[in-house]
Nucleic acid binder design. Structure first.
Ligand SMILES: [Zn+2]
Ligand SMILES: [Zn+2]
Lengths: 440, 440
DNA sequence: CGGGCAAGCCCG
DNA sequence: CGGGCTTGCCCG
C-alpha cells in the first residue's frame, strides 16, 4: 500500500506537493476559531509555546497542477457575488426551476453505516463510511440548452453550521492529512487529500477556491439510469466532527448546489451532518436532549440521565407507529407534565454490605408495592428487575468471589513525609537529608 | 528562567528543514503498535483507506545540519551494545559509582504544575508544564579525569513502559508537530520539534539516534551552585500520553542516564510519567483503582464508583499522617471485609414525580432509621443529606421552575414512514412517491 | 479547582 | 452492537 513518503523519493514528474506561496491573503486570524462566549463547542487547548493553527493549508502544500484535470485539484478564483464557494456562500434551501430535491437512500438499511434523525434533521455517520445521497430534479424544458441536464454540475461543500464559524473553510485535521494513504500508487498528493467531503465517483472533481480556501467536490449530473428517478451519489467524510485542530467539534452543513455549466446556481439544498464514532448513541442523546430542552423550555437544566424508553425518534424509518405523540405547547402548566417525566436518581455509595443489601431490598419492595397498588406491573417491571438483578449479583458473589460492588477502604492510604524532595531512587543509600526515601 | 524560545530568535544561519532521505532502514512495521491482545491501551481507529503511521518521522523532514551544534539536532549512529538510545536501551536503575539519584523538587508546591504519586511511583504532569528534576551525585574521586563532573552528560530518553512497545521510539504526534510554533522566527524546524521530552536549558542538545529513531535530550552536568547539593534540570513534555497517533495512551518512562564524555553509562534512573490534562483527577483515580485492585486481588472486578473519602495517598507530600493504613494481606476471608467496603448503587430512572419523591423520602427515612438504630449518625450523615438535598431540590422546583430531575416523555416520539427515502428538502412539492416528506 | 459532559475506543 | 471506561475540555 502506497505511502505518503513517496513525495520524497519521487522520480517521475507527477504533481507533487510543492509549497504554494501564492495564497497568502486568506483573511481571518486562525486562533480565533474558539467561540467568543460560552457555547457548546469545545476546543483542544494549546498550552505554552504552541499555538493553534487551525488551517494547516496556509502553510502546507497543495498540488500545483493545471486546472480541470480530473486527477488533480481544480482551483477556483471566482469573484462572483454569488460564488458557491466564496467566503460567505449561500446556505438557503432553494428548489429552483428544476425542483431540486435531496433524499437519503434507506434501502440498504440493514448494513447501512449512517443514521438520520428526522426530528433533528441531521445525518449521523461514521468516518469514511459511505452515504448514498439521491438527487431528484425535473427534466429541464426541452430546448433550454443552458440547463440541459448533461451540462449540470452538482457541488457539495461543507461549511460550519454555527454562524460564528460560517466564514471559516472546513478543512481536514493534521492527523488525518498526515496519515492519509488514499493517494494510492501515485507519487503526489491526492486531489482530495485536504477535502473532508469526498464523492465516490469516477468523475468527481476536487475544487479549491483560492480566495476562500474552501474545498468542495463537484460531479457532473447525468440522467439517472433508466427506470430510476434519482441521481445517486455516494459521499463520505474523511474527518470527524470532533477532529482536533480540524472541525473541532463544530457541526457542519453540507451545501449541495446544482449549477449550470457557466456557474449559475439553479438549486440548493443543505444537510446537517455529524461525523462521529458512535452515530447511534450520539443521535439518541441529541434527540433526548433536544426533547428535554423543548419540554423544559423556559427552564434551563441540562439532562443528567437519559430515559431508558425506546424513544429513538427517527433511528429507524420503519419503526412502528407509536402511540399518540405528546407535543403540547411548552408553556403549559408544568404540574400537568410531572407524572410523565422521567427522573434520574443519581448513583450513590453505601458503606457496608448489609446496608447495601437492605437498601436494595427496600427499593425492590418499594417498586413492587407501587406496581401492585397502581396495577402498573408492566410499566414498573424494568426498575423492579433492575434491583432484582443487583440483588442477585451481590448475593451470588458470595460463592463466585465476583462482585459489581466495589471496594475500597474508607481510610486514606496516605504516605507521610517531612521532606522537600521526592526520592525516586529505590536503591538509595539512606542519608540524613530531607528527602523521602521510597523502598519496596 | 531560561526560555526555550531563546533559541529561536537568534538571527544567525538558521538551518531549514530539508528533506532527509538518508535514514530509511528503521526497522519495524509501524502498524503493529496496537497491542496484540486485550490490553489497557486504546488506539485511535483508522477506517477504510487510511492507515496508521505511528512514526511520522520516517517520512517527514528533519533538519540536516552538522552535528554537535547546539542549535540543531545531534544525530547519533552509535552501535555500542549498551547504546543508551538503541533499539532496546537499558532501563534498570543503576546508582553507579557516583550514587546517581533523582528527586523531584516540591518546594514550589503552591504553584507547581505536577503531582507525584508515591504509591504508584508515577509523575502526573500537564503538557508543556515544567517539572524540576534534581540530580544528586557524589563528587567523583579527585584525579579521575574520566568521570570529572565537568565532562559528564545527563541524558533523558522517553521510552514506552509497556514491554510490547519498549522497542518503539517515542515520537511526537502529528498534531503537535504541525501546530508547534516554538521555532519562533527561525525559518527552519526547531531541533526539538519531534522531541516529546525537552529540557529548559540553554545547553540542551537534542539527539536523534538514526538507527533506533529515538529522540533524547542531553545536558552537560556542571557542579551545582554553591551551597546546593543538587543539579536541577527543568523538563517538560510536548505531547500527552493520550495523543492520537503519537503516544496513544501508552504510558512512558523517562530514562535518565549519567554518561561520561566518551559515552560510558555510569548511572541510570527511570521515572514513570503520565502527561495529561487533569493530573489530579487521573492520579486520584489511578490510586483508587490500584488500591481496589490490590484489595480485591483474586477477584477481578473493575471499580465502578470511587469512594468519596479523601484518600489521595500521595497527592501532597505534606498531608498529615492519617490513621493506621489498613493493608491486610488480601487472601483474607472476604466476609470480614464486607462491611468496610463501599458499594455503589448505580443511577436509575423513575417515571413520574410523585413516585420519584416517595422514593427519595423512602431512602431518606431508611438511612435516618439505620443511623438511629446503629448510632451512626456521623457516618451516615453524607448519604442522608444527599437525599435531603435531592428532596429539597425537587420540591423547591415548584416555585423556581428549576429542577435537576429530567424530563422526557415515556412515549417514543417516532415519526412514522412507509418510505424508502428520507426527503431532506423542506419546500418539496409533495408527490406520490415513496419518500418521506418532512416539513416544519 | 471540582463537577460534568462529550466522544473515542474497548470488551463482552 | 451496547455498555462502560477514559480523558479532553468547559463552566460555575
Ligand atoms: Zn480528522
Ligand atoms: Zn501530541
Amino acid at each position: 500500500m502506497p505511502k505518503q513518503s513517496e513525495h520524497k523519493s519521487k522520480s517521475g514528474k507527477p504533481k507533487n506537493c510543492e509549497f504554494d506561496d501564492s495564497k497568502s491573503e486568506s483573511g481571518q486570524s486562525k486562533t480565533e476559531n474558539r467561540p467568543s462566549r460560552s457555547s457548546v463547542i469545545r476546543m483542544p487547548v494549546m498550552k505554552s509555546d504552541c499555538e493553534l493553527v487551525a488551517n494547516q493549508k496556509e502553510e502546507s502544500s497543495y498540488p500545483d497542477t493545471e486546472m480541470g484535470y480530473l486527477d488533480s485539484v481544480v482551483y477556483e478564483d471566482g469573484d462572483r457575488y454569488d460564488d458557491p464557494t466564496g467566503i460567505l456562500p449561500g446556505t438557503e434551501d432553494y428548489a429552483g426551476p428544476l425542483n431540486f430535491q435531496l433524499f437519503l437512500n434507506t434501502e440498504e438499511k440493514a448494513k447501512r453505516s449512517w443514521l438520520y434523525s428526522t426530528t433533528l434533521k441531521k445525518l449521523y455517520i461514521d468516518i469514511n463510511k459511505v452515504v448514498c445521497v439521491q438527487f431528484k430534479l425535473k427534466q429541464p424544458a426541452a430546448g433550454n440548452i443552458n440547463s440541459s441536464k448533461e451540462n449540470l454540475m452538482l457541488r457539495a461543500l461543507p461549511v460550519y453550521s454555527a454562524p460564528e464559524f460560517l466564514q471559516e473553510p472546513v478543512c481536514r485535521c493534521p492527523v488525518h492529512v498526515m496519515t492519509d494513504r488514499s493517494n494510492g500508487e501515485r507519487n503526489g498528493c491526492s486531489p482530495w487529500l485536504y477535502h473532508v467531503l469526498r464523492a465516490e465517483h469516477h468523475e468527481a472533481q476536487y475544487h479549491m477556491n483560492r480566495k476562500s480556501q474552501r474545498n468542495s467536490v463537484v460531479v457532473p449530473v447525468h440522467s439517472p439510469a433508466l427506470g430510476s428517478e434519482f441521481v445517486t451519489i455516494m459521499y463520505k467524510f474523511s474527518c470527524k466532527t470532533s477532529c482536533a485542530f480540524g472541525l473541532n467539534r463544530r457541526p457542519i452543513h453540507v451545501i449541495f448546489t446544482l449549477e449550470t455549466a457557466n456557474g449559475d446556481i439553479i438549486g440548493r439544498r443543505k444537510l446537517l451532518v455529524k461525523v462521529c464514532s458512535c452515530p447511534k448513541r450520539d443521535l439518541h442523546r441529541d434527540e433526548i436532549v433536544a426533547k428535554s430542552d423543548s419540554d423544559t423550555n423556559g427552564r434551563k437544566r441540562r439532562i443528567k440521565e437519559v430515559d431508558n424508553s425506546a424513544s429513538f425518534s427517527s433511528m429507524e424509518i420503519y419503526s412502528p407507529p407509536s402511540k399518540e405523540i405528546k407535543m403540547e405547547s411548552i408553556d403549559e402548566e408544568e404540574t400537568v407534565e410531572d407524572d410523565s417525566l422521567v427522573y434520574a436518581v443519581p448513583s450513590f455509595n453505601i458503606v457496608g454490605k448489609s446496608l447495601y443489601i437492605s437498601t436494595l431490598e427496600l427499593l425492590h419492595s418499594h417498586f413492587i408495592g407501587v406496581s401492585v397498588r397502581n396495577d402498573s406491573l408492566l410499566d414498573m417491571h424494568p426498575i423492579i428487575s433492575h434491583f432484582g438483578e443487583l440483588l442477585d449479583k451481590v448475593k451470588e458473589r458470595k460463592r463466585n468471589m465476583d462482585t459489581t460492588a466495589v471496594l475500597s477502604f474508607a481510610l486514606p492510604n496516605t504516605t507521610t513525609s517531612s521532606s522537600n524532595n521526592i526520592n525516586l531512587s529505590e536503591d538509595v543509600t539512606n542519608e540524613a537529608m530531607s528527602t523521602e526515601v521510597i523502598s519496596d
